[in-house]
């Protein structure tokens, strides 16, 4: 690794002021599972690394008036171990479990996964299907936005150099909303998704789809929603045929590419299958409630 200075922030406010003070060639360090690799490969050459792992106000999982709040520093293991999430959002537990391996899940944070913003991230789809919002803290205070707005492109978010992600909030209206997440990787452990997908839905009157949200990863520059598939399903009867049709429509919502992990056409097949399966699984969850 190349030489840099290291400072540690005890709070989000301090992190913002340290970033402003040392910027713009600064980098935020949380779990480090991506950043340290990039630093070793000299993909970043910062003057200063600001460690935020001691900022307690970025930690914790709680249900408050707004909904379910997860601090940016919540690790994937903490999500898996949280009793409320286990009870209400098995999809989030599953998504966290598919990330890396035990060691990286113990280090890696939810916020880090979102901020790194690789298209194949596993934290994104389920949160996006649950219409999660994020809070960003900067020198001028905080701002709130939808997760979709937060993502800009591959490895790019709206964050400025002197801003940090504070937390992720699943709005109250979606607490307990039946959701499913599936990932297709080439191995069980330590694999990146070729495609991942999540669906969240309520069952409306007459066994119809209500408020269906579908999200896909690794098929576009960022994690995306599948509006064509969602619009098709809204208000329709819940049948295997309609789920399959939504899968076909989701393919059109995506822009998969050929790369060394998989071909675009293979990814298209996966999108259709995973969309259908997540819808089916979410529906089963709804029936069990």
């Amino acid at each position: 690794m190349r030489a840099f200075d290291f400072v540690s922030a005890e709070s989000a406010d301090q992190a913002v002021s340290l970033l402003s003070e040392h910027g713009p060639n600064v980098i935020v360090l949380a779990g480090g599972t991506d950043i340290l690799v990039d630093l070793k490969h000299a993909k970043h050459d910062p003057d200063v690394v600001v460690d935020i792992t001691r900022a307690d106000d970025l930690k914790g999982i709680e249900v408050n008036d707004e909904g379910l709040r997860m601090g940016a520093l919540v690790t994937h293991t903490e999500i898996m171990d949280d009793p409320y999430i286990q009870e209400n959002f098995p999809a989030l537990v599953h998504a966290a479990h598919t990330i890396g391996a035990v060691q990286t899940r113990n280090l890696g944070t939810l916020g880090g996964n979102l901020v790194t913003c690789v298209p194949s991230m596993d934290s994104g789809p389920a949160l996006m299907a649950l219409e999660a919002e994020v809070t960003v803290a900067g020198p001028d205070g905080t701002r709130r936005m939808d997760l979709e707005e937060f993502f800009v492109g591959p490895r790019k978010t709206v964050l400025e150099h002197n801003e940090v992600l504070l937390d992720v909030i699943i709005p109250k209206r979606n607490l307990g909303k039946p959701t499913d997440f599936l990932k297709f990787g080439l191995r069980k452990g330590q694999a990146l998704a070729l495609v991942n997908a999540a669906s969240a839905l309520w069952v409306g009157e007459g066994n119809t789809f209500k408020d269906v949200k579908i999200s896909l990863g690794a098929v576009a520059p960022t994690v995306i929603r599948a509006p064509a598939a969602e619009d098709f399903l809204e208000g329709r009867e819940i049948t295997p045929e309609n789920m399959a049709e939504a899968g076909r429509l989701a393919v059109e919502d995506a822009k998969p590419i050929d790369d060394f992990r998989a071909s675009a056409s293979y990814r298209r097949d996966l999108i259709a299958v995973l969309t259908k399966r997540t819808l089916d699984n979410a529906y089963r969850l709804a029936q069990n409630d």
Partner: peptide, 24 residues
């Protein structure tokens, strides 16, 4: 952080020692 040969336990949790800075 891929091979796990550097795994140590920090505050009770196994982690990759190659993915943490000394300052942390």
């Amino acid at each position: 952080g891929d091979c796990g040969a550097c795994t140590v336990i920090v505050d009770g949790m196994p982690v990759n020692a190659c993915l943490m800075l000394a300052g942390q």
